[in-house]
Simulated scan of single mutants.
Amino acid sequence: MIAMQYSFTLPADYDMSIIDRRIREKGPLLDGFPNLGFKAYLSALKGEFARRDNLYAPFYLWQEPEGASDFLCSPAFQTLTGAFGWPQVKTWIVWQAEISPDIAAARFATRDILPIEPYAPLAEIRRADGVQAAADVVTGSALASVSGFEPTTWTRVRFRLWREIPEIDAHTQAYRVGHLSQARA
Rank of each mutant, 00 (worst) to 15 (best):
Val94Ser: 05
Gly148Cys: 02
Ser43Ala: 09
Ala134Tyr: 12
Cys73Glu: 15
Gln88Val: 15
Pro115Lys: 07
Pro87Gly: 03
Arg24Met: 06
Thr110Asn: 03
Leu36Thr: 00
Leu114Thr: 14
Pro151Trp: 08
Glu66Lys: 12
Ser100Leu: 07
Ser69Pro: 00
Ala105His: 10
Pro118Ser: 04
Trp62Lys: 04
Ala97Lys: 04
Gly47Phe: 01
Phe71Gly: 03
Asn35Val: 02
Leu36Ile: 04
Thr81Asn: 03
Asp20Ser: 12
Ile99Met: 11
Ala120Tyr: 10
Ala68Pro: 00
Thr91Cys: 05
Ala133Phe: 05
Asn35Glu: 15
Thr110Phe: 13
Leu122Lys: 07
Phe38Met: 12
Ala76Arg: 11
Ser147Trp: 12
Gly140Trp: 07
Phe84Cys: 06
Val146Asp: 12
Leu72Asp: 06
Val146Met: 11
Ser145Glu: 07
Gly130Ala: 10
Gly148Leu: 05
Pro118Gln: 08
Leu143Ile: 12
Arg24Thr: 13
Glu25Lys: 11
Asp53Tyr: 11
Ala142Cys: 08
Thr79Ala: 15
Tyr56Val: 05
Arg24His: 09
Ala105Leu: 14
Arg111Thr: 12
Ser100Gln: 05
Arg21Phe: 10
Thr79Asp: 15
Val131Asp: 14
Arg126Glu: 15
Val94Met: 04
Glu117Asn: 09
Thr91Asn: 07
Ala134Ile: 04
Lys39Asp: 01
Phe149Met: 13
Leu80Trp: 05
Arg51Trp: 05
Gln78Trp: 14
Gly82Asp: 07
Pro87Arg: 06
Gln132Trp: 15
Ala105Ile: 02
Ile93Trp: 10
Pro115Ile: 04
Gln63Met: 09
